[in-house]
Design a protein around this nucleic acid. Sequence first.
DNA 1: AAAATACTTAAGGGATTGCTTGACAATTAC
DNA 2: GTAATTGTCAAGCAATCCCTTAAGTATTTT
Lengths: 110, 110
Amino acid sequence: MMNHSLDRAFTALGDPTRRAIVERLASGSATVSELAAPLPMSLPAVMLHLKVLEESGLVASEKKGRVRTCRIEPAALSLAEQWVSDRRRLWEARLDRLDAFLDSAAEETP
Amino acid sequence: MMNHSLDRAFTALGDPTRRAIVERLASGSATVSELAAPLPMSLPAVMLHLKVLEESGLVASEKKGRVRTCRIEPAALSLAEQWVSDRRRLWEARLDRLDAFLDSAAEETP
DNA sequence: AAAATACTTAAGGGATTGCTTGACAATTAC
DNA sequence: GTAATTGTCAAGCAATCCCTTAAGTATTTT
């Protein structure tokens, strides 16, 4: 499965500026200017980051008048979260089985 | 907090080859050659991906004789998972509060 | 000791990323 | 209607990324 949307989601989250944007949006919607205000870069640069976030599906936005308001898209976050969670659980299940094996082996040769 | 380790973890997971490696390792440790076998690229290329994964903390490895064996490092996976989870929950809690507000508002003007 | 195996390092090249500045809408306020 | 606000587009540039091939090193195997 050539999962393009996970590519984009994880790559988007790999940049500290974009994570800061997601962090800010997690506590409520915000306009482009509001998002840009605390960031140490030009407005066009922030726009580019927002574009990446939108293409990844992590963020959505609507323009009303001259103001664009952005919000989290929880489904995409959930997808990324799930991928990591599934792999970690699979690995940990393996470890559990190994522990169980070692324990039973120890019982047999006390 | 300038979270460098999350940068590396998410960026690492943003590449499909590296996700394929993590996927493979989730179901058990493997040598470099075993990891490289199904991948459509040269061995040195795979080594570079492994280097990125190790620097991100997602994967660890040990060399015994001439064979390097790689394994998942669940703590780093957990960290990434947690970051996404926390933001999603924060956002969803907001949505819940909004629903509650709309419900109570509807009760007051029936 | 020679050959095969398993990995590693180095050099380089083409594509992508993350910014910048400058110019240009489109909308709202005065 | 003029000016301020808010966002967008375009060109360009330095750094990084992902891969290649070629040439090693270290460890078995025969």
